[in-house]
Design a protein around this nucleic acid. Structure first.
Length: 567
RNA sequence: CGGGGCGUAGCGCAGCUUGGUAGCGCGCCUGGUUCGGGACCAGGAAGUCGGAGGUUCAAGUCCUCUCGCCCCGACCA
């Protein structure tokens, strides 16, 4: 298409609301525009990228036997109540009433809907396995949308679901998805890693995430460069240093620490490192059971790990609960002499001696304590792994980096088939729950991640596979070279290159800036001087290289450049 | 939900302290000159100053309330 007919509203100046690279460049390049917090319109250029990504996804999903369908976004509240997620999603789900007063919800995901679909149609082991997928808009009322298109409230997701006879079947469907995902993200030009993950609200057993390393990512992952262990820090096991650390205190005693509550405050007040302070954190269950959790002051509690140990139903106790039950201000809670049902301690406590803890008396701490004073029932790993901690597999110090989650695969097992009674008759005549998997890809996140990973100060550098167009013809003197340029343009189209032709009557510099901003992989400069020698200039966006090419040989040369430079 | 910041022309901003006819740059429109790195000259259009209420002779500016957007953090005692 001719640029003068295209709708590409580029901006010279940075919109002030955009901080991350992808957000800024998508807005400036005229790819997206914001409608409200966390809700965007994809403008023609942006939508072309989205369509390309979706096309790659369809391609690879179909290749593993996936069948595309489309479920409703407007769902009945009833189905969520059946699975119990009406409550657990809570405010993250957009819920409202229709005119008859019936509760409905905009689907944040589709496990319930598809499970009920499977329940209606899959009755025999002969119907299994199945892989069904859709590309559809999801709605989640995120407390805080951020990073432009990275965390939004309305977004397009590819979600697929597998239905198998047994766990072995699920394992196969799961592996097929991992292979398909690997191809999808590779074809989209992303560098990614697969990490162990938490299954969170989805429920189920095994789960892994596909992560694109990026400073702007909201997730943090652990990477061991020695043995290759990778995991989301939400679930990463933490290795432990053997060395012992001793405090400076002269015997066990109570010290006056008026209004000194946090680890940081205690550390300053007593002039002792955080590592020598034991934090005491109280969890309580609805039935009134209490567990005191101890952790070293330099660590934080990993709620995911803790939930596995305590079981569901335990929550961080409120300040008032602590005051009423123990008659002490929360900041001075401690293990010595406290009456709780259980005391659980992180393993890291074993490595310290002669340390500080709360005293259960407001405005006082105990110093000079050792592990044997604490009456610990159980030592466990409940800490959030830190940069430099030891790898749980090989004890090499690990690194922690930010990442963007672009895909997530779950082995759901029978989480939904049990609660929604999705059962089939097996060959032995027995009624069994279908074993399910669930697999998601954020389409918009692929687009954003590609930019986070590939851009420069001039603009976006699209991977060829998802670029909105392949080639942009920059025509320097439109009124003098039109006939030749038109021929070139048409030849490129016939050769299969998605081409735009910038014949706008504006200065050359303007065209170059726009071209670089929107990141088309190849620019072809047509100028009067080179035309007289039957040549044009080919510019590669990725590395800035330029070649004078005979006008007749352009398509062949482009194919060669695309291959040589791995665009 | 807690903290911080910002709403003035399509975009980026000034004006608010100390109330007195709404401004700048870019973009847009018309005409002309340019034409390989966001051109130049001349002329022009465009703003309920986020919204409501109040104080005042007079409010973009002061007061109250409210809506929206961005960033940081979310029970770690």
């Amino acid at each position: 298409m001719r640029w003068s007919n295209l709708f590409i509203p580029t901006m010279k100046e940075n919109p002030k609301e955009a901080e991350t690279t992808s957000h800024r460049l998508l807005l400036r390049g005229g790819f997206i525009t914001q409608h409200q917090s966390g809700v965007y319109t994809f403008l023609p250029l942006g939508w072309r990228v989205m369509l390309k990504v979706q096309s790659i996804i369809r391609d690879e999903m179909n290749a593993i036997g996936g069948q595309e369908l489309l479920m409703p976004a407007l769902t009945s509240g009833e189905v969520w109540k059946q699975s119990g997620r009406w409550e657990s999603f809570g405010k993250d789900m957009f819920k409202f009433e229709d005119r008859k007063g019936k509760e409905v919800a905009l689907a944040p995901t589709h496990e319930e809907v598809i499970s009920l679909l499977a329940k209606d149609y899959l009755h025999s082991y002969r119907d299994l396995p199945q892989i069904w997928y859709q590309l559809q808009t999801k709605f989640r009322d995120e407390p805080r949308p951020r990073g432009g298109i990275l965390r939004v409230r309305e977004f397009i997701m590819k979600d697929s679901y597998s239905f198998d006879r047994d766990w072995e079947g699920l394992e196969r469907s799961y592996e097929l998805h991992k292979e398909a995902y690997t191809k999808i993200f590779s074809r989209c030009g992303l560098n990614f890693i697969i990490v162990e993950a938490s299954s969170g609200l989805m429920g189920g057993k095994k789960s892994e995430e596909f992560m694109v390393m990026s400073e702007t990512g909201e997730d943090s992952v652990v990477i061991c460069e020695k043995c290759g262990y990778t995991a989301n820090t939400e679930v990463a096991a933490a290795g432990l240093y053997e060395r012992q650390i001793k405090g400076p205190f002269d015997g066990k005693k109570l010290v006056h620490t008026p209004n000194v509550k946090t680890v940081e405050e205690v550390s300053h007040f007593l002039n002792v490192q955080p590592i020598l302070i034991v934090k005491s954190i109280l969890y309580s269950s609805e039935s009134g059971k209490t567990v005191l959790v101890l952790i070293r002051g330099d660590y934080e509690i990993n709620e995911v790990k803790l939930a596995k140990i305590l079981g569901n139903g335990f929550q961080l106790a409120s300040f008032d609960f602590i005051r009423n039950r123990f008659g002490v201000e929360p900041g001075f809670l401690g293990p010595v002499g406290i009456e709780v049902d259980k005391i659980v301690a992180d393993e890291s406590i074993q490595n310290i001696e002669n340390f500080v803890a709360g005293s259960n008396k407001t405005d006082y701490h105990m110093v000079g304590l050792s592990v044997s004073d604490l009456h610990i029932d159980e030592f466990v790993d409940i800490r959030v792994i830190k940069d430099g901690d030891l790898c749980p597999r090989c004890s090499n110090p690990v690194r922690i980096k930010n990442a963007i989650e672009v895909g997530h695969v779950f082995q759901l097992g029978t989480r939904y088939s049990e609660s929604l009674e999705v059962k089939y008759t097996d060959s032995d005549g027995a009624l069994k729950p279908i074993v399910m998997g669930s697999y998601g890809i954020g389409v918009g996140r692929i687009m954003a991640a590609a930019i986070e990973q590939s851009s420069d100060e001039k603009g976006i550098i699209w991977p060829y596979s998802i670029a909105p167009y392949h080639v942009n013809i920059v025509e320097i003197n439109p009124n003098k070279t039109e006939q030749t340029t038109k021929k070139l343009y048409e030849k490129l189209l016939r050769s299969g290159f998605e081409t735009i032709w910038d014949e706008r009557n504006i200065s050359a510099g303007f065209k170059f800036k726009d071209a670089e901003l929107i990141g088309i992989p190849v620019n072809i400069v047509v100028s009067e001087s080179k035309i007289t020698r039957d040549e044009v200039e080919v510019q590669v966006r990725k590395d800035g290289s330029r070649f004078d090419v005979g006008i007749e040989n352009v398509p062949e040369t482009l194919n060669k450049i695309i291959e040589d430079k791995k665009l």
